[in-house]
Design a binder for these strands. Structure first.
Length: 733
DNA sequence: CCGAAATGTCATGAG
DNA sequence: AGCTCATGACATTTC
């Protein structure tokens, strides 16, 4: 438990560090609350990877083949699903063509304007926008879930099969190759080697027990292979359970859009999120591509934003500049000043327009202006906001100037981020369509991770048994293949890997193994395989070792031993040479992998000298430690890869959230503009008893709670506006 | 032959 | 107490 705690703590620590590194403040949780699953995965994944459970023992004692907490299959599953979702989510990034256009054009010719009309029209618009956003999104999510799940199942399925090929591989994997004594008898090494070479044949005639034992080991391997399928169902079940939690709650979109719907609260949420955004932006501002920024800033008025955001998701309302202008032309002269700036000068607009803004406007801007909007959109709330100011001050009431500056800034960063992640996304897509290994998720990121734990577990498993070429290609570069034995699910589910894994002594040998395990019959040609064959099922239940059936001894004993004697001799490990030199009557494999009781039993059967016993103990210790080291390294690598992947996931999430936010704010801004235009239109058509238009400086329109529009004196409107401003500020404090 | 990467080994601590 | 495992550090081998 202590270690568990330790590792959990470490995991949390690292997670925190990750967050901080990415620049994601803790507030991010507020963004992600609606899509907790990813976060939860991220938290559970790495932390679980740190769990220092002695799963080997667990398996031995419990004989359990269920998914280990550290199981990479699970991690793979979650990762695959998460990434898949993200990749697929990209598809839904569509810029809805604007219905707004039609609406505005339609309104222009229309002469009459009623107070209720604007609100209704906007409401319709916004609602349609919402539908566009939420509808498709949900659909996508569902499909994602299904696909992700099925794919994962496939992956799992791919994992299981390899077992069949175990027998041969396992046998082969016994370490081979040269070794130099660091043992006390090291000085004898050369002599021993010579001796061994000379008497290679002799040693083949070691006690029959060795052969028998070997045979048993072989069988054991076979059994392990057979037992693996049993693990498969377990994996599935656990995964199916995990699936639901994986799927993102649909609440995200709603939450993001909520500001539009809940007028009063939206401003605060927006502002807070904005603050968070700013903090994030500081860090990532440097990521912005200069060329991009130039494009954004220098681009001709009107389109740059929309084009840049073509990929942006969930655009409730598409920004359409031309429409505004068209409608504006017919509305009022004041608006003409306003709209062009907004549209054409994304960044500069705020600075240029702000000076024009009267006192009340600035305050409104500080409060993000949404309050005003809310008031406009939702008359019942009785928000007599300062928005109602007339023409020249129009920018203020809508308070979009600052927003726009921010928006543009955000958009810039967003773009940069998006670009920055394009490679990743591309890689994800590749991975998604990579039938060979659906889980080779890390391949894109680090060269060494080509078939990292996760990827290898499924990919190699599915391919290795069938084709040596694919297996070797991935194996040569993959850590897992040469790496840890018995670590985590992949090695255990994949005896193929396991067999090769322990080898790793010499490249030639590994290759040889890869070749040979395809065709078990080739084994018979290898005289020393019986001695060398490591059984890396040491983490299996002891009973399994003995329960295996005996393979036909003839195949094992026959073959051209002499031919390969030298070759195999070279492949033997140092300890194996030593064992031979010391005439150890059983295989190193047995020495290393036999359970303690059986090991002691074995020792008791022979009259061994002290030197022999010492060597045997050393061999056992070194053999176990070797595997442990391999496991350790593999685990370390996996941890790094997981962290790497988590960082990327977090970055992707952040980028996506930023994109969504930008889109949302942009739609908000558009609506403000539209309201503004409507305001202008209405105000411009009002005439006093003398038939003269009202002066915007003296009068303002105000929405009443009952939906009606009132014309009130400026002074009164200003007062109400100030009152409105203070409330939110106080509330925040 | 050198340096980096991979792998093996030892010592140590923990379960 | 003995065994096993994990892991850092160092050694050795391989590329």
């Amino acid at each position: 438990m202590l270690s568990l705690k330790k590792y959990l703590t470490e995991g949390l620590l690292q997670f925190t560090i990750l967050l901080s590194l990415i620049g994601v403040r803790v507030d991010v949780d507020t963004y992600l609350t609606s899509q907790l699953p990813p976060l939860r995965e991220i938290i559970l994944g790495p932390s679980s990877a740190y769990t220092q459970t002695q799963f080997h023992n667990l398996r031995n004692t419990l004989d359990g083949y269920g998914i280990h907490p550290k199981s990479i299959d699970l991690d793979n599953y979650f990762t695959a699903r998460r990434l898949l979702n993200q990749v697929r989510a990209l598809d839904r990034f569509q810029v809805p063509t604007t219905e707004v256009n039609a609406w505005l054009v339609h309104r222009d010719p229309e002469g009459s304007v009623s107070g209720s009309q604007p609100s209704s029209g906007l409401a319709l618009e916004s609602s349609s926008g919402l539908q566009d956003v939420t509808g498709p999104d949900n659909g996508v999510r569902e499909s994602e879930t299904e696909q992700g799940f099925s794919e994962d199942l496939e992956d799992l399925g791919a994992v299981a099969p390899p077992v069949s090929g175990d027998l041969t591989k396992e046998d082969i994997d016994l370490g081979a190759g040269r070794e130099i004594f660091d043992y006390s008898h090291r000085q004898k090494e050369q002599d021993v080697d010579k001796e061994l070479r000379d008497g290679a044949e002799q040693e083949d005639t070691w006690p029959g027990e060795g052969a028998e034992a070997l045979a048993r080991n072989l069988l054991v391997d076979g059994e392990t292979g057979e037992s693996f399928p049993a693990q498969f169902p377990a994996d599935i079940s656990s995964i199916t359970e995990a699936v639901p939690s994986e799927s993102e709650p649909p609440g995200l979109q709603n939450n993001l859009l909520s500001p539009l719907l809940t007028g009063t609260e939206s401003p605060f949420d927006l502002e807070q999120q904005w603050q968070d955004l700013m903090s994030i932006m500081e860090m990532q501002a440097m990521e912005v591509n200069t060329s991009t920024s130039e494009v954004l800033y220098n681009a001709p008025p009107g389109d740059p934003l929309s084009t840049n955001y073509s990929l942006a998701p969930n655009t409730p309302i598409n920004q359409n500049v031309s429409l505004h202008q068209a409608s504006l032309g017919g509305c009022s002269q004041d608006f003409s000043l306003f709209s062009p700036e907004v549209e054409s000068l994304p960044v500069a607009s705020s600075s240029t327009l702000l000076p024009l803004v009267p006192s009340n406007s600035t305050s409104l801007n500080s409060t993000f202006g949404s309050t005003n909007l809310a008031g406009l959109f939702f008359p019942p709330q009785l928000n007599g906001t300062a928005n109602d100011t007339a023409g020249p001050e129009l920018p203020d009431p809508l308070g979009g100037l600052l927003d726009e500056a921010m928006l543009d800034e955000i958009s810039l960063m967003d773009l940069a981020i998006e670009e920055g992640f394009n490679p990743v996304q591309a890689s994800q897509l590749e991975e998604e369509f990579d039938s060979d290994s659906g889980l080779s998720l890390d391949s894109s990121h680090s060269p060494s991770s080509l078939s990292s734990s996760e990827g290898s577990s499924s990919s190699s498993s599915s391919s290795s048994s069938s084709s040596s070429s694919s297996a070797s290609s991935s194996a040569s570069s993959s850590f897992s293949e040469e790496g840890a034995v018995g670590y985590s699910s992949d090695s255990e589910t994949l005896d193929l890997e396991e067999a090769e894994g322990a080898v790793g002594y010499q490249p030639e040998y590994s290759k040889f193994c890869r070749m040979s395990y395809q065709d078990p019959s080739q084994l018979s040609c290898l005289p020393y395989l019986e001695h060398v064959g490591h059984n890396h099922t040491y983490n299996m239940a002891p009973s399994a070792l003995d329960s295996a059936d005996l393979p036909p001894p003839s195949t094992l004993k026959k073959g051209s031993k002499e031919k390969q004697a030298d070759f195999l001799d070279k492949q033997m490990s140092r300890d194996e040479h030593r064992a031979r030199a010391m005439k150890i009557p059983f295989t190193n494999d047995k020495i290393i992998n036999l359970p303690v009781e059986e090991f002691n039993e074995l020792l008791s059967k022979y009259q061994l000298s002290e030197a022999q016993l010492s060597l045997i103990r050393d061999i056992r210790r070194r053999g176990k430690n070797k595997m442990a080291a391999q496991n350790c390294r593999k685990r370390k690598l996996d941890t790094i890869l997981n962290l790497e992947r988590d960082v990327e996931d977090l970055q992707r999430d952040k980028a996506r959230l930023l994109r969504e936010k930008v889109e949302f704010l942009r739609s908000l801004r558009q609506m403000k503009q539209k309201v503004q235009s409507l305001y202008q239109e209405v105000f411009g058509r009002l005439r006093d008893e003398n038939g003269r238009p009202y002066s915007p400086s003296q009068y303002a329109l105000q929405y009443a709670g009952d939906g009606s529009v009132l014309l009130i004196p400026r002074t009164l409107a200003d007062q109400q506006a100030r009152r409105q401003e203070r409330k939110p500020k106080d509330r925040r404090k």
